[in-house]
Simulated scan of single mutants.
Amino acid sequence: MIRVLLVDDERMVCAHLRTILGGADDIEVVDEAYDGAAAVESVLRHRPGVVLMDLRMPGVDGLTAIERIAELERPPAVVALTTFDADHYVIKALRAGAAGFLLKSTPPEDLVELVRVAADGHTVMSAAATRRLVASAAGRSLERDRHRARIDDLTERETEVLACLGEGLSNAQIAARLHLSEATVKGYVSRLLDKLGCANRTQAGLLAHEAGL
Rank of each mutant, 00 (worst) to 15 (best):
Ile2Gly: 04
Val4Gln: 09
Val4Tyr: 10
Asp8Asn: 08
Glu10Phe: 14
Val13Lys: 12
Cys14Asn: 14
Ala15Pro: 01
His16Leu: 14
His16Gly: 14
Leu17Thr: 02
Arg18Gly: 08
Thr19Gln: 14
Gly22Thr: 13
Gly23Glu: 13
Val30Gly: 04
Tyr34Met: 11
Asp35Ile: 07
Asp35Thr: 06
Ala37Ile: 10
Ala39Pro: 02
Glu41Val: 12
Ser42Gly: 07
His46Asn: 14
His46Gly: 11
Leu52Gln: 09
Val60Tyr: 00
Val60Leu: 13
Ile66Gly: 01
Glu67Leu: 05
Arg68Asn: 08
Ile69Asn: 04
Glu71Gln: 13
Glu73Val: 15
Ala80Ser: 09
Asp85Lys: 09
Asp85Glu: 14
Asp85His: 13
Asp85Tyr: 05
Asp87Asn: 09
His88Ala: 15
Ile91Asp: 00
Lys92Phe: 13
Arg95Glu: 12
Ala96Pro: 01
Gly97Ala: 05
Gly97Arg: 02
Ala98Gly: 04
Lys104Thr: 08
Lys104His: 07
Thr106His: 09
Glu109Ala: 11
Asp110Tyr: 12
Leu111Gly: 01
Val115Leu: 12
Val115Lys: 11
Arg116Trp: 04
Arg116Ile: 13
Val117Asn: 12
Gly121Val: 05
Ser126Asn: 12
Ala128Leu: 13
Arg131Gly: 13
Arg132Asn: 12
Ala135Asn: 00
Ala135Tyr: 00
Ser136Gly: 07
Ala138Pro: 00
Gly139Asn: 08
Arg140Gly: 07
Arg140Asn: 13
Arg140Ser: 10
Ser141Val: 15
Ser141Thr: 14
Leu142Lys: 08
Arg144Pro: 02
Arg144Asn: 04
His147Lys: 04
His147Tyr: 13
Arg148Ser: 09
Ala149Lys: 15
Ile151Trp: 11
Leu154Gln: 07
Thr155Cys: 03
Thr155Glu: 00
Glu156Phe: 15
Glu158Phe: 10
Thr159Cys: 06
Leu162Phe: 02
Ala163Arg: 14
Cys164Leu: 10
Cys164Lys: 08
Leu165Val: 07
Glu167Gly: 03
Leu169Cys: 05
Leu169Gln: 08
Asn171Ser: 15
Ala172Cys: 02
Ile174Asp: 10
Ala175Asn: 11
Ala176Phe: 02
Arg177Ala: 14
Leu178Val: 08
His179Tyr: 05
His179Arg: 15
Ser181Thr: 15
Ser181Ala: 13
Ser181Asp: 11
Thr184Leu: 03
Val185Ser: 10
Gly187Tyr: 03
Tyr188Lys: 03
Tyr188Ser: 02
Arg191Tyr: 00
Arg191Met: 01
Leu192Val: 03
Leu192Trp: 02
Leu192Ile: 04
Leu193Glu: 01
Leu193Tyr: 01
Leu196Gly: 04
Leu196Ile: 07
Leu196Glu: 00
Cys198Lys: 11
Ala199Lys: 10
Thr202Gln: 04
Leu206Ile: 02
Leu206Asp: 03
Glu210Phe: 04
Ala211Gln: 06
